[in-house]
């Protein structure tokens, strides 16, 4: 195996082949299809390689997303993992690894916390970092205009590209029209669609990336 192949990001038990460092993935699917769990599972696979993790929880509290993360088999390791939650409930968290921003509409605040955490991990020698954004739909719902959302997404995906990280950013196609999704998709390298069939099977499909399984895969 070449050195390059060893450095790729892997996805454990999911039917997704490894991707090269610096890849940004849009994970699109409705909440009931288990989209969030798929994205979290893609992130938790990084634990096998001692990678870092930054979760942006715009939909939920930190506590709740960490519970979901544990639910897919992850373990929150404070030495190399952090969460940004976006609510105004005023949880005064003394935890350096759990940052609170007032609202999902505060993209400047989320961006600053994100950069600060990413820089912090980098300084501590954690070079491989996975990023999870839950979810773009919530950011769009709270934003008055689209421009700041594009600006925020460019900032996140730009960091991931330069730092050779991996991002999975969730969007709900039932909350956005296809035009908005396709213009948001432009910022990403590939798209993972998630669905549940009438028979109750969970399936995913990867588009836009080389060397991936074709069509819908049951998992």
């Amino acid at each position: 195996m070449s050195q390059d192949a060893e450095q790729r990001y892997r996805f454990g038990g999911l039917p997704i082949e490894s991707v090269r460092p610096g890849t940004n993935l849009l994970v699109a699917g409705p909440p009931f299809a288990g989209t969030k769990a798929v994205a979290l599972q893609m992130l938790a696979a990084g634990e096998l390689a001692d990678e870092g993790l930054v979760l942006v929880a715009a939909d939920d509290t930190a506590e709740s997303i960490l519970k979901d993360y544990t639910g897919v088999g992850g373990t929150f390791d404070r030495g190399r993992m952090a969460v940004i939650e976006c609510n105004s409930s005023g949880n005064d968290n003394a935890d350096e690894n759990v940052r609170t921003v007032r609202s999902p509409s505060d993209l400047t605040g989320i961006g600053i916390e994100f950069s600060s955490l990413y820089e912090g991990l980098y300084t501590e020698g954690v070079e491989r970092v996975r990023i999870g954004l839950f979810s773009i739909s919530t950011l769009l719902m709270y934003a008055d205009e689209l421009q700041p959302v594009y600006r925020f997404l460019h900032t996140v995906t730009g960091r991931v590209r330069s730092a050779e990280g991996l991002a999975t950013c969730v969007i709900d196609p039932t909350a956005q029209d296809e035009q908005t999704i396709s213009s948001v998709e432009q910022t990403f390298d590939g798209r993972v669609d998630v669905r549940q069939t009438d028979d109750g099977d969970h399936q995913l499909r990867i588009q836009g990336l080389p060397d991936q399984p074709e069509g819908w895969q049951t998992f």
Binding site: R102, S103, L107, G111, S116, E119, P148, R151
Partner: peptide, 23 residues
């Protein structure tokens, strides 16, 4: 520190943040 930065009136700006104390 990020917690001391008041973004209330500046939500849509989006900027990078680099601590000047970074090695």
């Amino acid at each position: 520190a990020t917690s001391e930065i008041d973004t209330t009136a500046f939500e849509g700006l989006v900027a990078e943040y680099l601590p000047s104390g970074t090695p």
